Simulated assay, not measured.
Amino acid sequence: MDPGLGFAITAAFVWGFYIYVLKRSFSGYSPAVLTVLINAFAIAWYLPVTLTRTDVSRHIFAEFGTSEVGVLALTVVTTAAAFVLFLYAIGAGDVSYVTPINKIVPLFVLPLEILLLGQVLTPLQVLGVVVATAAVYVANYDPGGFFKPFAKAAHSRPAQLALLSAMCYAVSDLGKRVALQELAIPESLWVPLLLFGVLLVLLPSAVRNPPANVRPDLPKFALGGAIVAVGEHVTTLAFVILPASIASPVINTQAIVAVVLGGILLGERHFLIRLLAAVLAVVGVTLIAL
């Protein structure tokens, strides 16, 4: 197996489990507070990797120019926006309903690569777009008429948030590809920079709306931070090796993990329909990657 593909598959399992943990354990926190606290723990977990593998001062102060700062800033802002929007989406709707919609990120990654990096669209990729679009239909399916799911998607707040989050994740994925391949930012430095940047973006909102008492949940935040540190590490390794149009669809098969856990362990309704939607989404994005 190609090492990059192995990293992408591992990332899919890590992030799928993370989605389940978010829904199961952190329902009482605002998205900004949740992200700031988890990222703080993730940085702490990851810091030894950065210090042992990277000459931090040389890379930050000697090799970062306008391009590196610009790509980092764009990726940080879109990552923060995507994650917060997704948290709002899963807060308003079932994990197994929101996740298949949110994880059609490659539908947006590919056009961006075509326009900005010269990616060529093949007939299989066109078919993938059609299949992934069908996944959105199935995710919204509710017996009662052919056009009812379309109306539901148009007026469903969770669906709208999930789609907007997917668009932001697409820009973020493209930023990762450019940063790690074209600009060759070391992966051991990229992970804490991304996590810390997202933390800074959301910190003002978190400070304005502080939680009453986080101490009882600190072990859960530490666990969440560890999952994020591992997830960002393997995701970064995948983007170092693979193009975004390959890494993104593989990593977004996390939808399968989240849907299965949400349906089995959380008892969310319409499980079989959501599972079919997730499978279609995976098939679609896989065709896009071929």
Score class of each variant (00 low, 15 high):
Q125L: 02
F61C: 08
P211C: 08
A132W: 06
L275H: 05
I264R: 12
R208L: 14
L87Q: 14
L202W: 06
P3H: 05
L276W: 04
L261T: 01
L203Y: 09
I90S: 03
L202I: 02
F150S: 02
K176Q: 15
L116D: 05
V77T: 06
A277P: 01
F271S: 05
G70V: 04
N209V: 00
G28T: 02
L218Y: 05
E182G: 01
V240F: 11
T66F: 14
P158W: 03
V228H: 01
A40C: 12
Q181C: 07
F150M: 13
T35C: 10
E182N: 15
A42H: 09
P100L: 09
F64S: 07
G262P: 10
A277H: 00
L163G: 01
L193E: 08
V130S: 05
F13M: 02
F7T: 00
L117E: 07
A184L: 12
V228Y: 04
V283I: 15
R215W: 12
A278F: 06
N140M: 12
P192C: 07
P123S: 06
W15S: 00
G267E: 11
V136L: 14
I90M: 10
A258N: 08
E268H: 10
N213M: 04
H59N: 12
I104G: 09
L22M: 14
P211M: 06
A80I: 05
F26V: 04
K103H: 12
I288G: 06
P3E: 02
L51E: 07
A139V: 02
L195H: 04
V201N: 07
I256R: 03
S172Y: 12
F86M: 12
G4A: 07
Y88K: 11
A62W: 10
F146R: 11
R58Y: 13
L199T: 13
Q181V: 13
F146E: 11
V129F: 15
T253R: 10
F83M: 14
V77Y: 05
Q181W: 08
Q160D: 06
P123E: 03
G16D: 02
A151V: 02
P204Q: 10
Y141C: 00
G93N: 08
F7S: 01
N209M: 04
A278P: 06
H233I: 07
L280R: 08
S248F: 09
A222Y: 04
T99H: 04
A222Q: 03
